[in-house]
Simulated scan of single mutants.
Amino acid sequence: MPQPIMQVINASLSLGGRPILDSVNLELYPGEVVALVGPNGAGKSTLLSALCGDEPLESGQILLDGQDIRHRSAKDLAQVRAVQTQESRVSFAFNGEDVIRMGRAPWAGTEEEDRDEEVIAAAVVATESQSLTSRPVQTLSGGEKARISFGRALAQETKVLFLDEPTAAMDIRHQEQLMSTVRSRTTAGVTAVVVLHDLSLAAAYADRVVLLDAGRVVASGNAQDVLTAENLENVYRYPVSVFEHPDHGGLVIIPLRSHLSTQRFREGELI
């Protein structure tokens, strides 16, 4: 087994007196896509923030390359991990290229700075953002802003990628493109942790799925073992159907709507 790049050890955290993370243990390895899934309020985004070093724990540890992240400087962390948050608010009139270029900031004054233009150009192409680079970010749609934000994370060129619901505002094409790009980065040794609500997307691209509920890890493993109807119904408290797609064999997860009776009309009235 390779050595984990990150370890979460008995991590607990409360916000406003409410437990958000409860004794979470997790190991992250180079070259894998890990999807964090679970219902609203399960602790997915908080766990991601803790992994980034942005949300301090009440108890427990998070180790990066064997060292507590609390002992790593902000600049050091920025050279190791890139973060795409759910919302990327830009207050000034930056255009798309300006935002992607921000991903190179941790490398200013280093030898890597010489590669800035090459890396930025590659990030623009990878996110299909050529038509967005000269536009003010405030004029972009939610999905377009997400592509630019992802481009910034790619341009940072770190060995760990943390992405919080990066596909939520995207159309199908760009959802698939983003996850394919994440997959290609992990093939080159990057570790990616992605918060997703689309369970079928998680099943298609994640090497490992971590199912959270009420701040605890309910299950962790491959999609077939974790994303079972029983697990999902227990956690989401809603009936689902889980089946293999007849063409490609990937898991498909959809809500069961059979409890909704067929609408019928009698004498022009809905009954």
Rank of each mutant, 00 (worst) to 15 (best):
K159L: 06
R104C: 03
N95E: 08
G142R: 03
F265P: 02
V24A: 14
R183N: 04
E58L: 07
P56Q: 09
V24W: 07
R237P: 00
I69C: 09
I5Y: 05
Q84W: 10
E157R: 12
R70C: 13
A123W: 00
P56N: 11
T110F: 08
C52D: 12
D65F: 06
L28H: 06
V210I: 15
L199F: 14
H245Y: 11
T187N: 12
A206D: 05
M102D: 03
A223F: 00
A223E: 00
R72N: 02
V218S: 04
V194Q: 03
A105D: 11
L63G: 02
T85I: 04
Y29M: 04
G17W: 09
A50R: 07
P239C: 11
Y236P: 06
V83R: 06
F162Y: 10
K75Y: 02
T110G: 13
P255N: 08
I120H: 01
E117T: 12
V80Y: 14
E165P: 01
P106V: 13
Q138A: 12
L47C: 01
E230V: 11
E27K: 15
L196I: 11
W107H: 15
T228N: 09
I69S: 02
L227P: 07
P39N: 10
G249F: 09
V90K: 10
T186W: 01
A93D: 14
L28N: 05
S129W: 00
